[in-house]
Design a protein around this nucleic acid. Sequence first.
DNA 1: TAGATTGTTAATCGATTAACAATC
DNA 2: TAGATTGTTAATCGATTAACAATC
Lengths: 212, 212
Amino acid sequence: MEAIPLLTLKRLPQYLEALYRFKRAGLKMVSATKIAVFTDVHMTQVRKDLAYTGVVGTPKIGHRIDTLIQAIEQCLNWNDISSCFLVGVGHLGKALMGYSELSKKGLRIIAAFDNNPELAGSYYQGIQIQPMSKFSNLLSRLHVHIGILTVPAEVAQTIADEMVANGILAIWNFTPTKLNVTEDIIVENIDMSSSLAVLSRRVAERLHHLNS
Amino acid sequence: MEAIPLLTLKRLPQYLEALYRFKRAGLKMVSATKIAVFTDVHMTQVRKDLAYTGVVGTPKIGHRIDTLIQAIEQCLNWNDISSCFLVGVGHLGKALMGYSELSKKGLRIIAAFDNNPELAGSYYQGIQIQPMSKFSNLLSRLHVHIGILTVPAEVAQTIADEMVANGILAIWNFTPTKLNVTEDIIVENIDMSSSLAVLSRRVAERLHHLNS
DNA sequence: TAGATTGTTAATCGATTAACAATC
DNA sequence: TAGATTGTTAATCGATTAACAATC
């Protein structure tokens, strides 16, 4: 399994999105150029990125859409479904629990946890909600590697520690807290702050220009 | 208003987070080194990034934390609050409506919109929910530039078009749909897919290594 | 055949890191 | 004074873009 550049990895889902569209539109073949136009990525970039997936196109023709979808999904490991746990059944947690796209991207939430005793035992979107006390037991029984963290910022570190102590391998962190975990734990942050930083600044620049 | 590199911009909120912590811990001064350790960013990188905010530190001493916070917040325009509209009061929308950090980051949701007639007129977290038909009217009256998009993927483009038609300047897009808008509209995407791509791949690589 | 496309090598660009003089 | 820190210039690194030969 060779390394794929981080930025290539981040672009692959965009290509996939484009490919699904083209497929829905009834197309069978696609060129890097077409994908480039759709995704606003440079044509050569697309070609290079696709090369990382191992696909080989045919000159003058392009790529079979199906083959390309397969290759990218395989690259991202979105073919075989990984089970995961979600901790923190607030609005954000529920949004994810009801987000059907997740299973198309290789992730299935098989249990949710929340310390609110009123929720314990209930179901949401077909997923049972457990008290945090059951986390350890279920994790070891169910071979889960990934934890989704959607708790309030104040308890994020505590819950993350608990996840790690129980043997979780990777945390998808939706909280604004920078988690302090050992090197071997994989952490991916959904970073609203950095996105908002870019948005705010660009809006400010725009308004500034309009006024001068 | 000079340009700040995109990646610098994205790191500034991390520094801010660290600075708030240091401040809460009672510190008055901080060095780039300390921030670097906390954020896992290279020391020199931190120094360069801070330079973009215009602050000047004192050799051997470092920076005043308060000055630094001020400078970064100013850079990101998080000092003066921008009003914004949110469209799509599902779980994700509600999560944002209840997210108090937002106002600390210069954003206040002053109205929410949803086409579910049952919600029309009701309040959530003190924010009134309006039918989409009122969008245009309120926008022109209230001087709003930013729209938060938390609708289902299928209608994202339609609602975005509506926002743009009514004069919105920037869209913070929480849907997985790539919005097709004119050049002059600022779009910032919260891209769960690319984050999940990185997570999935890294987990797959890790498991692959463990098994070999 | 000619045009479109591929894959790849070379050139450019931008961002990160290293090195270092200045200094409270 | 010596160590720690700053700000800045130079070197390195990686990613993007340009150029081009190969080809169905």
